[in-house]
Amino acid sequence: NQESVVAAVLIPINTALTVGMMTTRVVSPTGAPAEDIPRLISMQVNQVVPMGTTLMPDMVKGYAP
């Protein structure tokens, strides 16, 4: 099972992602793949992402898996 990126903390809208904001988990439906964490760092979210929420590609500005 592939791990997806999950918010480790509450991420406010327009916040640039840091490694400490993200964790990985096997979830369904799958979100952004765990191996993309290095690409996701410094990208901004376009909505509030509550802690424990799977990071879906459409939540991150300019990100395409």
Rank of each mutant, 00 (worst) to 15 (best):
V49I: 15
T15I: 07
P57E: 05
S4T: 05
P29F: 06
L40P: 01
I41P: 07
M22T: 08
R25G: 11
L55P: 00
V9K: 07
V27L: 02
Y63R: 01
L40Q: 03
P65C: 10
L17I: 07
P65H: 09
T23D: 10
P29Q: 04
P29K: 01
P57V: 08
M51E: 14
R25N: 08
V5H: 04
P33T: 04
M59V: 05
Q2Y: 13
A16V: 12
A32L: 15
I37N: 00
V5R: 01
P12N: 09
M56D: 04
I37Q: 04
N46G: 04
S42E: 05
A16K: 14
E3K: 12
A16G: 08
V27M: 06
G62A: 06
G52Q: 04
V48C: 15
A34V: 07
M51R: 13
S28D: 14
M21T: 05
L55A: 01
P12I: 09
P65V: 12
I13K: 15
V27F: 00
G20F: 12
Q2S: 13
N14V: 07
S42F: 08
L10Y: 14
A7K: 01
A34F: 05
M59W: 03
V45P: 00
N14P: 00
T18P: 06
A8I: 08
Q44W: 08
S4Y: 07
I41E: 03
Q44D: 04
E3N: 07
S4W: 08
I11P: 01
T15Y: 02
P38E: 10
L40Y: 03
M56H: 07
T30D: 10
L55F: 03
R39V: 12
A8V: 08
R25Y: 07
G31D: 02
Y63N: 04
G62V: 00
E35M: 13
I41C: 00
S4K: 02
Q47N: 02
V60R: 02
A8F: 09
I41A: 02
V45D: 01
V26G: 05
N14S: 06
P65A: 11
P65S: 11
T18S: 10
V60Q: 03
G52S: 01
V49T: 04
P38A: 11
D36N: 03
I13S: 11
I13R: 13
